[in-house]
Every structure is written in structure tokens, then in C-alpha cells.
Write a protein that binds this DNA or RNA. Structure first.
Lengths: 210, 210
DNA sequence: TTTATTTTGTACCATTTCGCAAATAATCCT
DNA sequence: AGGATTATTTGCGAAATGGTACAAAATAAA
């Protein structure tokens, strides 16, 4: 991620920027932007405040960087899940499995979606965050719509399928799962709903495993 | 809402508790719980801090009260929208219109859903909020499922309709609209999506206005 | 070895934040 | 009128917060 030139002047860093970002992200994820203090960020990243400031700018810039970083990673993962060379049913199953895996981390409490739980609240007061979020979500819509259109072209779905609407619905369900996971709904329940949604979109006709 | 006994001992209040709650709610709505200070709440409600404290307890208790109050009002409004004596198509149209009206206030910026934008983030650190939110959202699911089941019984939908899944999808779409409205998506776009969702759920066969 | 460069660690500052104590004011009850 | 009750107002204070100045430390280049 961060290019580490072989020869680097000055005193070497004692921290790994990527790892620091990950720790900060996890903190923001649970506590939100305003709910997380620089002291907590400093402790979690093992960087003292001046180092934090030097590396990532002020708190707001730090959060934006974390958000942007997270967006890029998610976009890549979604692209992989929506593989155009597998059946739509399987692609959607992968997509929901991907998100559920993120919303229910192995260690730690269920946390929902980083962008919904922290970015959406901040969007009302931070135009940069709002624009980044809007762009990200529209991108997901587009990716899903294209993927569904491909399924139509492949004869998996009826020719008169409204791809855009279906894409938004599929996306909506991701949001539902994100929210409910943070509110304590069981993973099993949400997995069942995801499966039911896949059935709903792809039709019950040809059930096959993802 | 608040019972105002005709005879009330002591110095009378100079504020209206309901109005104070509304002002506080609007502040929390935009800035979130942690992002809103007692000074701002004090200014918005025209109550100085000790009065706030005396009336609603500390900041956290105040937020919980506002959230609970909001939940009750929404539950009533949804119940009205989902009138069992009108066609499902019309009921769903009313439901989405209700939410869109809330997410796009006449005065002020688009703000999305109060519960999603403030309650969901807080749910990870405040068990009371989490339980209240979970209960609220499950309640919406149940109301929608019952309403859809009624439409099935009335012959508006196929007998083998999966009411629970459809209810969750309908609910998911509300969340999508809530999020997107806060991210700057146009009201028209979201109204179109709502209409398309209603068509999707009720079938394109008998289009009729809500 | 010296110098330039970069990061770290300590300490500090100004401001904000939450909460409360204590005195004052306005009303009801007797 | 006087006491009881409830609200308001002023002002305090301890703690937390975001941010920074400055010197020490660690490395590469010269």
C-alpha cells in the first residue's frame, strides 16, 4: 500500500502506517468520528499525537484518509465477488457473504458497516465525506446494475428485468443487514434473509449453491 | 404528550418540554450524539444547562428520551400509513411518501433518518440505545409483514408470497432512501425508486395511484 | 566524523466539555 | 402573609480535548 522506498532519510518510523490506519479505522468504526479522541487514536496506533499529526494531519483529515482507504478496499472486494463469469445467484451469494463476514468480525462485537455507521452521520456536516460517500454508494449501484444486466444478457433473468431497480434493491438489502447486525440481530437470521433475497432476485426456479 | 396538570406547584417553566425535545432532536439529527454539546443543546432549547439537567437528566439520558419519543411518533405514523383498509399499493406509497417527507424537511438540508444516522452509530456503545433500536426495527418488520399478509389474504398478492422476506425488502428500501437522502441524492430520484419498489412488490399488473 | 533529514518523546497551552452548587425568582397551598 | 415547592440564573471547577513547540534521537548522505 504505502511505498517504502529502499533508502529513506532520517529517523525510521517505529510504526506501520497501514496497521495504524487499520487500528484507527476499528476505533472509528465502533465509536464514530466525534466519539473517538486523539488520545484513544494515539493509544490504539501506538503513535503519539505529534506523530499522528505529522503522518495523517488533523483528526478530520485522518478520518477522511481512513474512509477513502476503506472505500478502495471494499470496491476491490466487491468487484471480485461480482465475478461476471459465474451465475448471478452465486455472485450475489458471494457478495452478501462478503459483507456479513465484515459486519461480524471473528474477534469483537458485531459492528455493521463502517461507512453507514460513521460516514453517513458525518455526511451531514462534512461535505468531503458526503461526496465521497455518495460517489461510493453510486458506484455500488452501478456495479450491481451492470452485473444484473449481464445476467439478463446471459438469459438468467427475464429480458424485461428492471436492472437498475433490482440493483438498488439488492443494495438496500446490504444496508439492512449492516444496520441489523449492529443492532444485535443474529448472523444466522441475516444470512437467511440474504439467501431469501438472492432467491427473490434470481427466482426460485434453479436453486444452486454459491 | 406531556401531561400538564392544571395546578402545578412551584415556579412555572418558561419552556415547552415538547418543543425543547424537538429542538434537541433536530440538533442530534444533524450532528449526532457525541457531536452535539450541552452548550449547543442549551442554546437550541433556550434552557440553560442546569434546567436541562433537571428536566431530562444528563446528555445521554436526554438523547435516549428524544430517541424513545421519536420512535413512538414514527410508530404511530407508520401505523396510519399502512392502513389495512386500502390497497397494499396505496399503503406502501403512503409509507414511502411519509419517510421521504421526513428525510427532506421543508426548511433545512436533507437529513436522512434520525434513527439510522444517530441511533445506529450509538448502538455499538450504548446497550440501551441498541435494544431500543432493535426493538423498533423489528416492530417495523412485523407491521410490514402483517400488512403484506393481509394483502395476500385479500387476493392482491399471490398466495405463496413470502411475506416476511418481502417485508424486510420493503424495509431495506426505506433504509436505502434514508441513507441516500443524507448523501445528497435528489428527492425525485428517490421518489422514483420508491415507486419502482412499490411496482416491484405489488406487481406491475394493476398500476393505480397512491 | 560531520551534516542534513526525519521521527519520536515530553511537555505544554488554550479551549471546550460536562456537570453541579448555591442563590434567586416565581408560583401554589395554608 | 408565610412557608413549601419548583425553576432559573450565575458561576465555578475538574477533566478531557485538539493541537503544537521544542529538544532529543536515529538514520542516510557527504
Amino acid at each position: 500500500m504505502v511505498q517504502n522506498k529502499p533508502t529513506r532519510r532520517g529517523r525510521p518510523r517505529t510504526y506501520d502506517p497501514d496497521q495504524a490506519m487499520a487500528r484507527a479505522r476499528d476505533l472509528f468504526w465502533i465509536q464514530g468520528f466525534s466519539g473517538t479522541s486523539l488520545d484513544e487514536l494515539s493509544a490504539a496506533t501506538h503513535m503519539n499525537r505529534p506523530s499522528l499529526y505529522g503522518a495523517f494531519g488533523d483528526k478530520r483529515a485522518f478520518y477522511r484518509t481512513v474512509l477513502e482507504n476503506y472505500r478502495e478496499k471494499m470496491r476491490d472486494d466487491v468487484r471480485v465477488a461480482l465475478d461476471p463469469d459465474i451465475p448471478l445467484r452465486q455472485a450475489l451469494s458471494r457478495l452478501y457473504a462478503l459483507f456479513i463476514e465484515i459486519y461480524f468480525p471473528q474477534d469483537g462485537q458485531p459492528r455493521g458497516c463502517f461507512m453507514i455507521s460513521t460516514g453517513v452521520p458525518e455526511a451531514a456536516t462534512d461535505p468531503d465525506v458526503r461526496d465521497l460517500m455518495a460517489d461510493t454508494f453510486r458506484g455500488f449501484d452501478r456495479m450491481l446494475e451492470k452485473r444484473i444486466a449481464r445476467a439478463v444478457a446471459a438469459g438468467e433473468l427475464a429480458a424485461d428485468t428492471e436492472c437498475a431497480t433490482l440493483a438498488m434493491i439488492a443494495n438496500s438489502v446490504v444496508g439492512y443487514i449492516a444496520i441489523r447486525s449492529r443492532l444485535g440481530e443474529s448472523r444466522e437470521t441475516l444470512e437467511s434473509f440474504a439467501a431469501a433475497t438472492v432467491d427473490h432476485i434470481c427466482g426460485m426456479a434453479t436453486p444452486q449453491d454459491g
